[in-house]
């Protein structure tokens, strides 16, 4: 895995985690009072998450693009499970502190 692929995947995964943390429906379903991310901000973060993938695709590095796509999908799923586990949610911890 090249440094570029590593950085691209890291940036996108960070964005996915950010989106998950402030996801309004997730917060509402879990009964958390944390402030959800606004729609405009969500769109912006989503675009930033997609940019590295587009850059890899445009560079013609099919292997890096597929790795990025697969790693993002896996990270997205694991993040959702992690935040959905009672007691593991950062949102819940933040909520409890209040």
């Amino acid at each position: 895995m090249s440094v570029e692929t590593c950085l691209a995947t890291g940036l996108s995964v960070a964005c996915i985690m950010g989106l998950a943390l402030g996801d309004p429906k997730r917060l509402r379903a879990a009964g958390l009072k944390a402030q959800p991310t606004t729609a405009r901000k969500r769109i912006a973060v989503t675009l930033v998450a997609l940019l590295p993938g587009m850059a890899l695709a445009l560079s013609g590095d099919a292997s890096a693009f597929l790795l990025w796509l697969g790693a993002c999908a896996t990270a997205g799923w694991f993040t959702t499970i992690w935040l959905g586990n009672p007691g593991q949610s950062i949102g819940q911890r933040r909520n409890r502190r209040r």
Partner: peptide, 21 residues
């Protein structure tokens, strides 16, 4: 719904969330 996993809903919804996520 991509980040939503309801844990305390009825079993059908809990299963549905796990499946769809």
């Amino acid at each position: 719904d991509i980040f939503t996993l309801r844990r305390n809903a009825n079993p059908v919804l809990v299963d549905r969330d796990r499946h769809s996520v």
